[in-house]
Amino acid sequence: MDRRTLRDLLDRNDDHVAALAPGAFDRHRDGQRPGVVSVCCSDSRVSQEGMFAVDEPGFLFTSGAIGNSVSALVDGERVLDGSVAYPLRHTDTEVLAVVGHTGCGAVGAALTAARTGEYPAEPGVRADVEALVPIVERGLDDPAVVGPDADESGLEPDSDAGTSVRDRLVEYNVHEQVAFARECEEAADATVYGFVYDLHGVYGGRDGTAYLVNADGERDPAALRELVGEARADHVASLL
């Protein structure tokens, strides 16, 4: 039994309780009306609350999924995942943020599977990777993904070698997830944004920056910069 980790968890909860403002839950005890539902990759390095500096309850409805997938397979059909559909339909949430991240292991595993046919052994992990493989395969047919300065190994990006295929596929996958969500009835009235969280300096800024790459299907950086305004223009970038 790992008592050290258990004690660490409880100490961290004490810190959390101490940081809460008095009455922090007063407006949310009997329900929730979060402004945003965020879908991010399941990864310990990528904190959804942390990246958007959310320190109060009730603002961000979070969902984590391997490869920041917004879909689920139900009776053989791809549908909007319940963790996304629920807030959009039942808590008056109007914004969906799809967040990929550089160095994504899920995208890397799907890239390996597409190239070699090798999949992770764990059934649950394999199923999630299998869902990403068609997206990766489409991406590999896109010249913007496999460009002349791309590192064909798909390994971590090297500043001297250009961006990796994997990181271009990360952004490509965000676009595909945004597109899927926008086609679903549950998200018909939502605004859908696509971001890439950069922890490798791939986009040229500081580690931890979230870059807007898609807004309701709009991918042109100039249009996105106009949307966010001059003061936030450094949050817009693209590898594609």
Results as ranks from 00 to 15, higher is better:
120 P>Q: 03
140 L>M: 00
103 G>M: 12
139 G>H: 05
83 S>T: 02
133 V>H: 03
86 Y>W: 15
135 I>F: 06
76 G>T: 11
110 A>P: 01
121 A>V: 08
112 T>G: 12
138 R>E: 09
121 A>R: 12
76 G>F: 08
130 E>M: 06
77 E>P: 05
108 G>F: 12
113 A>F: 11
67 G>Y: 00
87 P>E: 13
109 A>H: 09
50 G>E: 07
136 V>T: 07
78 R>W: 13
60 L>P: 00
77 E>V: 14
105 G>W: 08
102 T>R: 14
123 P>R: 14
142 D>K: 09
62 T>G: 00
53 A>I: 12
53 A>Y: 11
139 G>C: 02
61 F>G: 02
112 T>H: 14
109 A>N: 13
120 P>N: 01
134 P>K: 15
100 G>Y: 06
65 A>H: 06
80 L>N: 02
89 R>W: 08
145 V>Y: 00
107 V>C: 01
110 A>V: 13
128 D>V: 00
59 F>Q: 06
136 V>S: 05
119 Y>L: 13
67 G>D: 02
106 A>D: 07
128 D>A: 12
52 F>T: 08
53 A>R: 15
133 V>I: 01
102 T>V: 11
59 F>E: 09
87 P>C: 10
95 V>R: 04
99 V>P: 06
97 A>K: 10
140 L>Y: 05
109 A>Y: 08
119 Y>H: 09
102 T>M: 10
100 G>D: 11
66 I>K: 05
72 A>T: 02
121 A>G: 12
64 G>C: 06
121 A>L: 13
79 V>I: 11
108 G>R: 14
122 E>M: 10
145 V>C: 00
99 V>L: 07
100 G>C: 07
59 F>H: 09
60 L>R: 01
52 F>P: 08
72 A>I: 01
53 A>D: 15
97 A>R: 07
84 V>K: 04
94 E>N: 15
82 G>R: 14
84 V>A: 01
66 I>R: 03
73 L>S: 05
91 T>S: 15
132 L>D: 09
94 E>R: 15
138 R>Y: 08
140 L>A: 02
144 A>P: 00
143 P>L: 02
83 S>G: 05
51 M>H: 08
100 G>E: 10
84 V>S: 06
58 G>C: 01
101 H>S: 10
79 V>K: 12
121 A>W: 04
96 L>Q: 05
107 V>Y: 04
114 A>Q: 10
94 E>Y: 11
111 L>A: 04
141 D>H: 03
140 L>C: 01
137 E>N: 12
86 Y>M: 13
121 A>N: 13
72 A>P: 04
72 A>W: 08
98 V>N: 13
102 T>N: 14
145 V>H: 00
103 G>V: 06
61 F>Y: 01
145 V>K: 00
81 D>F: 11
125 V>H: 05
146 V>S: 02
66 I>Q: 06
90 H>K: 14
64 G>E: 07
103 G>P: 12
121 A>M: 09
115 R>L: 13
112 T>M: 15
107 V>A: 02
78 R>S: 15
113 A>M: 10
76 G>P: 02
146 V>Y: 01
115 R>W: 12
77 E>Y: 10
121 A>T: 08
69 S>D: 14
116 T>N: 09
81 D>K: 01
74 V>G: 11
58 G>M: 04
